[in-house]
Design a protein around this nucleic acid. Structure first.
Lengths: 263, 263
DNA sequence: CGGTGTGAAAACCTTCACAGCG
DNA sequence: CGCTGTGAAGGTTTTCACACCG
């Protein structure tokens, strides 16, 4: 998912696997909840359940951070919260800019979990002059002409792109040129960035499509055995099939199966 | 990421790796763009670039679907669009309900990429009576009392949860009880669901934390060599320590390293 | 005894590199 | 000749299972 560098031959040791990094926030959330309920210690089994993973994975993950547990007892909640926060870099605060204050951008600006964990919305930026000055979630929107100035003045290194897809790459380029090195992209486009810049994307439509895939499969499962009919093997028949139509459409490559390409 | 089942010992063949499934939507998007520009064929190299992956991976991915390319030429764009759509189950349309019409829910309701690829917002549901009947993105909000009725009448199998974390599990339970078998969760909670139900989550805060981790590492890289000072090894000294205190910030815990657990 | 920490095995995913087809 | 399709190699992640410690 992350694009830029991420490799680096591991100078000495200090190499936490990416998969583990991606789970640390989950653990942290579960631990924070425990902490709020003043639970002093927790076992890998309990914590794993709360985080929705299995305990072997959790223990292995923690083993990359160091030996922070007590055998026969479990983990000290407060202590672990602190260690994970530190590992994730959440003991410092990260100013963040959000570019593109439409529906989504506004929702993000108002998102609580944002401020809670070390992130601070340093600025909201939009290209629409009509938005300039209007407060969204208590923060006045600034015009995108000032993007570079804002980034530099505030020392922002993380940018969130919530613009339409069409302008996302331009916005990205400007952010990067101004010094941003991590980008969270909500626009449905592939961003290209120079080495050393990380991009993560969040795409509703992709998530839904993945769900649809599994959903479809569940439906097919009922009629399971060998009835290789509607959407099965990669060669035979040449029945109907009816191709797409609208958002995509054109004629309708219909012979469905290989053999010869339509067009 | 997906929670529920996903395993199943692969009854016969028909096993597209999860990682591949997760990329199909990306390919589809890139292909759709090419299709709109009336590009007839594309090579694995070109398509891979457009989708932001490398070409070997793309070819391997496609090989799980079948042999849809032409050696020496490439892939027929229209044909591939259709094959991938079919594989993902996008040739049928999927009614979707969105529960929780706050800022985020409203943004999702208005999201274009939604309707475009086979998904149809069948209903918007919110617990606030003041919202009931109010149109959001052209669709009137319905009250959550009617949740079960809506799901059943429309044959909805995909639900999107955009409620506050506190009620997400209850909403999830009701959705599942009413027949939903795929859930996209935007609330920052781990949902537990019975076997056979898929959950995917989207969590802004987690994504930001992952970025922060890499960002922090970049910063540390500048002072690289062996100056094992600030955030290094897992054993020595035993200075301050000072556990955190809720929100995040407080003093400036700096003694930093382990040795003894605070608490 | 109970639960962590971890080698070793298994599963999964990516990349390489090239045979083979159009 | 050019590009797909794919075995095989290499890497990463997950799971197992148990030694070891409090």
């Amino acid at each position: 998912m992350a694009t830029g560098r991420t490799h680096r031959p591991a100078t000495r040791s200090r190499g936490i696997p990416e998969a583990t990094v991606a789970r640390l926030p989950l653990y942290l959330r579960a631990l924070t909840a425990l902490s709020e309920r003043s639970v002093p210690t927790v076992s890998s089994e309990e914590l794993a359940a709360a985080a929705g993973v299995n305990s072997a994975k959790l223990r292995k993950d923690f083993s990359y951070l160091g030996s922070y547990g007590t055998r026969g007892v479990g983990y000290d909640v407060e202590y672990l919260v602190y260690q994970i926060s530190r590992e994730l870099g959440l003991t410092q605060d990260w100013p963040v800019v959000i570019v593109g204050i439409g529906n989504l951008g506004a929702a993000l600006a108002g998102y609580g979990g944002f401020a809670s964990r070390g992130f601070r919305v340093a600025a909201l930026i939009d290209a629409d002059p009509a938005m300039t000055g209007k407060p969204v979630a208590g923060i006045p929107v600034q015009h995108s002409d000032d993007l570079e100035k804002i980034i530099e003045e505030d020392g922002v290194s993380i940018g969130v792109i919530a613009t339409p897809a069409g302008v996302a790459q331009q916005v990205c380029d400007r952010l990067v040129a101004a010094g941003v090195t991590s980008i969270l992209n909500f626009a449905p486009t592939v961003l290209s960035v120079p080495d050393g810049v990380d991009v993560r994307k969040v795409d509703l439509s992709i998530e839904l499509q993945i769900l649809a895939f599994h959903e479809q499969r569940k439906a097919g499962e009922e009629a399971e055995s060998e009835a290789a009919a509607v959407q099965a093997p990669p060669v035979p028949l040449g029945s109907a099939g009816e191709a797409p139509a609208k958002g995509t459409g054109r004629k309708g490559p219909d012979g469905d199966v290989p053999a010869v390409m339509p067009a």
